[in-house]
């Protein structure tokens, strides 16, 4: 592929030559698809403002979401929601997720560098071995994890979640990282060696700066995996203070009592900050993708 390494400005991307008909059809398709994708969010917020009778029986416009005939804002102030706990859960989720992603990212990029940039016979075998990680169902790791964490004396701490989350994100992260790294021309490394850079220098000065799109992609992937993880968290966490958000949401479902409005309120409170953060960060994320164009 061309390696002209020109800094193509992101703005200069629009191709004006495509016909107006194509543009209109594309836009219509995108709008329809967007409505389908916005609907769950709308429905979730509606759910949080209804009581059980409205959720299960009243359906205006034929839509299950409907417009509540009475808004049940009290779902948000219901003491059973334990807002203060949700705040704790949220904090824990953020800490656990961010650290797990950071560990997975660093480990994956380093591994990827060793696998893709060094000529050694076993690299293919190691690559395949790491792929094994994608295959492990989380459910079978629970008992080994319980035993491992207790032997390491970290039972119930945040570390006991962070390490497994990082490990489960690792294989996919290596896979993504490998993909991006093959796209970075080896000539850049060679040039750096001639300039007197060591292996480590090349990694930090040449490879890492060019891997920003990989960071976003891996980050998003690992984020989804860690943020919604329920099974490991349920089994490994031993105290209320260390619990993460998915457990908090799950605990809104009582044994013989399900208050849908309350569940809706809990989930909405848990989701909205994430959507706001995503919207704020999406510009950065998208720019990092476009930055990928630099490498040609």
């Amino acid at each position: 592929m061309a390696n002209d390494n020109k800094l193509g400005a992101p703005e200069g991307y629009t191709i004006k030559k495509s016909g107006p008909a194509l543009r209109i059809i594309s836009t219509i398709l995108l709008i329809v698809w967007s409505i389908i994708n916005l609907y769950p969010l709308f429905w979730m917020i509606m759910l949080s403002l209804k009581n059980n009778e409205q959720v299960n029986l009243t359906h205006k416009f034929g839509l299950p979401a409907g417009w509540p005939n009475k808004w049940h804002w009290e779902n948000y102030t219901n003491p059973e929601l334990h807002l203060e706990r949700i705040v704790t859960y949220f904090k824990n989720s953020v800490i656990v997720t961010v650290l797990a992603i950071a560990i997975a990212l660093v480990a994956a990029m380093m591994a990827s560098y060793a696998l893709m940039r060094f000529n050694w016979r076993a690299s293919g075998a190691f690559n395949k071995m790491f792929m094994l990680g994608i295959t492990v169902p989380v459910q079978v790791s629970l008992v080994p994890l319980l035993i491992t964490t207790s032997e390491l004396g970290i039972t119930g701490s945040r570390i006991s979640l962070i390490i497994p989350y990082a490990a489960f994100a690792l294989s996919m992260a290596i896979l993504i990282s490998n993909g991006f790294m093959t796209n970075i021309p080896k000539e850049l490394d060679e040039a750096a060696y001639i300039d007197g850079c060591s292996r480590y220098g090349v990694f930090f000065r040449i490879i890492l700066p060019l891997m920003t799109p990989a960071i976003s992609t891996i980050g998003i992937y690992s984020f989804l995996q860690c943020w919604n993880e329920l099974i490991i968290a349920t089994t490994l966490v031993t105290s209320e203070e260390m619990r993460t958000l998915p457990i908090g949401i799950r605990n809104l479902v009582g044994t013989n009592k399900v208050d849908y409005g309350l569940i809706g309120a809990g989930i909405t409170i848990a989701t909205i900050p994430m959507i706001i953060v995503y919207i704020l960060m999406s510009r950065k994320i998208q720019e990092s993708f476009i930055a990928g164009a630099v490498k040609g």
Binding site: A104, M110, A111, V136, I163, A167
Partner: peptide, 10 residues
């Protein structure tokens, strides 16, 4: 780092 995670957990 990757090997530690891999052999330790997976």
């Amino acid at each position: 780092p990757a090997l530690i995670l891999f052999f330790g957990i997976l």
